[in-house]
Design a protein around this nucleic acid. Structure first.
Lengths: 211, 211
DNA sequence: GTCTGCAGGCTTACTTAGTAAGCATCGCTT
DNA sequence: AAGCGATGCTTACTAAGTAAGCCTGCAGAC
């Protein structure tokens, strides 16, 4: 129909499709990631993508995994507390870069990347003297915290002004006080994050010394 | 076209629509909640719903709020630690009953119900002697933990067997150990939850006694 | 009693999304 | 040269949200 493009287009591949999908989600959000748009991003029709991926679900799984491998695994020889602190920060950074990935993770396993991640973390904890059970506890606790924190951050910063949280604060005195305080102090999510992180790490240290 | 139904149907209303939507999501999952299906559930065509709600988004906001009001607020006169423990459990229970709501919460403010909830919790903490800042810290920390924990629980229990976490465990020794251990001990999420909860509450107690 | 307005539900139809099925073409192998 | 497989294209179907406008029966007003 149209002229054949003189520039030979690099052939598609599963990797190129996934990379483009990741990029698209980062730039325009997850809802912009449609097969048609992803296709046009690659200079191709939507249906062509199906030669390289089974369907949209596989793309979603794929980009979640791409995100997960961005998490920095701690080197095996650092002190456990430093290692956990660093990985917690790394997880937070990664999900702030790819906020859309949080919602996806809920329904997807994360593939092998997730398994590698778990293995590395548990490894550090075991070497530090945690029992199997306590290592599992520590992992769950830390991960729950980090995950929950990131979700709350993004859902707060992503909330447009004028949402339900502020109107009617007249009869919610503590909330009003909190809001006022936050406005004055310049609310710092980073501070919140570090506070909880240190509290948890200290608590885990107590558990470890018991083991 | 069809015969007029002899039984007079109770008229629709915003509340009836939201209640039916909540019920539908509980019974068949969030993806089953479509305007057409919700309509037929109420014996009505999809477009009729638009006389009572502005659109699907309003329905989603509405059922999120319905879920949030199920969270039990602690009575003002209990000891803060008991109050926090109870509300954490209540939050967890509510979201286990309505697992689909978790994903929704990420993108929605929660309306006034969320504000009431925050106000009540901060109130308890302030009365217990927490400074404004520490009350905010405590709130963020606890909520992040509970939220993250629930998400992880549901995503694990919702994962079909044979996912990426188990194959290839050969070169992931710590993960293998953990899996084995979990199989033997009978993995208890409840135990995990309580462990982290108590650790955090103890940490917060230390913070409070400093105030 | 008749008329009228309108609230509440219905019909149709448009848009966007995912994707099944099959066609076309280009380049390499034999 | 002939054939063939891989890669991309075309068409078309289904499901979902929702805009626009129609229909009808009931509540007062006269």
């Amino acid at each position: 129909m149209t002229e054949k493009t003189p520039t030979t287009r690099p052939p598609l591949s599963r990797d190129r499709v996934l990379a483009a999908a990741l990029d698209l989600a980062d730039r325009h959000g997850l809802e912009a990631l449609t097969m048609r748009r992803l296709g046009s991003e690659l200079g191709v029709e939507a249906m062509s993508l199906y030669k390289h991926v089974a369907g949209k679900d596989e793309i979603l799984d794929g980009i979640v995994e791409l995100v997960l491998v961005e998490i920095e695994l701690p080197p095996a020889d650092v002190e456990w507390k430093d290692a956990m602190r660093e990985r917690a920060r790394s997880v937070r950074d990664v999900f702030r870069r790819h906020a859309w990935a949080i919602g996806l993770l809920e329904s997807r396993s994360g593939g092998r990347a997730a398994a590698v991640y778990v293995d590395a973390i548990i490894g550090v904890l075991r070497s530090a003297g945690f029992t199997v059970d306590d290592a599992a506890h520590a992992f769950w606790l830390l991960d729950s915290y980090v995950y929950g924190h990131v979700v709350q951050e993004t859902s707060i910063t992503g909330t447009p002004p004028g949402d339900g949280t502020e109107d009617g604060a007249g009869d919610l005195p503590h909330l009003a006080e909190l809001t006022r305080r936050a406005a004055v102090a310049g609310f710092q999510v980073d501070t919140e994050f570090e506070f909880g992180l240190e509290l948890i790490l200290d608590g885990l240290e107590r558990v470890r010394s018991r083991d």
